[in-house]
Design a protein around this nucleic acid. Sequence first.
DNA 1: CGTATGCTCAAACGATCGTTTGAACGCCTG
DNA 2: CAGGCGTTCAAACGATCGTTTGAGCATACG
Lengths: 204, 204
Amino acid sequence: MNRSSSTKERILGAAEVLFAQRGFDGASLRQLTTAAGVNLAAVNYHFGSKEKLVEQVFRRRLDALNAQRLAALAKVREAGNGRLEDALDAFIRPALELSHEDSGSLFMRVLARAFAEHDDSLRQFLSENYGHVMRQFTAEFARLLPHLTKEELYWRIDLVTGALTHAMSGFGMIQRKQDVSEGAHREQTIQHLIRFAVAGLTHP
Amino acid sequence: MNRSSSTKERILGAAEVLFAQRGFDGASLRQLTTAAGVNLAAVNYHFGSKEKLVEQVFRRRLDALNAQRLAALAKVREAGNGRLEDALDAFIRPALELSHEDSGSLFMRVLARAFAEHDDSLRQFLSENYGHVMRQFTAEFARLLPHLTKEELYWRIDLVTGALTHAMSGFGMIQRKQDVSEGAHREQTIQHLIRFAVAGLTHP
DNA sequence: CGTATGCTCAAACGATCGTTTGAACGCCTG
DNA sequence: CAGGCGTTCAAACGATCGTTTGAGCATACG
């Protein structure tokens, strides 16, 4: 029983790495199970199919990520000082903390890939399970930026989302310098993203 | 001989559509040649391999796109009034005009996919053939924003690039309304992107 | 007219894919 | 000890992939 959960976890871990590196189609179950050190048939035994495995890879990270985002957003609302920076922090910080975990940084690449691939079933899965998070943040932004028309707001949120996805998935040129600690670098990154997002959302 | 170029063009057109829809791996040569109405072997006969076909799909659009971008940038430099908006216009407008051509909008999706896939050979191809364009624009931005450190500038360019790629590849929620002409909608979009980019690049 | 040349075609190649199968294994329970 | 159960395993399945082949066709040239 303990071995079983170990096998599942090993598959999920290897899947995240290989999906990030080669994409969902590009990573074969043979590469994946070899990297995980498990039998080829284990994926279909434990997950049912490759597609279900993909969903579980998302679930494992996104459940926790979105719970943290919503909790942080609730705290911001509770405080009620209406600072745009705080709402953005609630959205950005959990994602960046995840992406600095063990192999969590790869997950952001997986997520960026999912956006790039216009695979309908995957997009539907993401929308059904996690669309409410985006809706809550959009509502909060609308509250904090009441002078913007709905169309204008959507435009800006869309562009900010693109920038953040791009940055968090590690496409960027910016690398941590050796004389900066990881925690400090993350804090620096968060501040960069927030200042950029604020400028993009509030410009005249 | 006329038939030959027609076959090549039909393959390139169908490839662009299918690569945008299903990705480079996801689109098979059999789907592709069927859609193009040509024989399966035609791809390897005219292009040598699937990978070479992918390169030609990029070349066909990017050669023209980057030539227009550099020409527009040269004009901006010549005028010499140092407006950031004009440099951004030189970068954005050619891409958006391309994406409103016949099936050119799909090409921006293909480009976004290429960014998402961390395929090394493809990235190297893009960097070797078109890296100088990005370098010229970066240099121009550095000239127009002399108060920014190099690191700060790279951060902002990186985020702006992410936003523009995201927006131009049509992920966005914004759709053209029926009572707005296509030309007007494009001009509106360009202005949106430029204002957003200016805000992101110049904020304190 | 005969013969190169450029192109198209159906067919087949070996490789690799996701999935299924049935036997073997370890372990807990009765 | 016997037997059921969850898991792992090697092997095979049919499908599909990119690529190659060699015959067939048309057009251009001596």
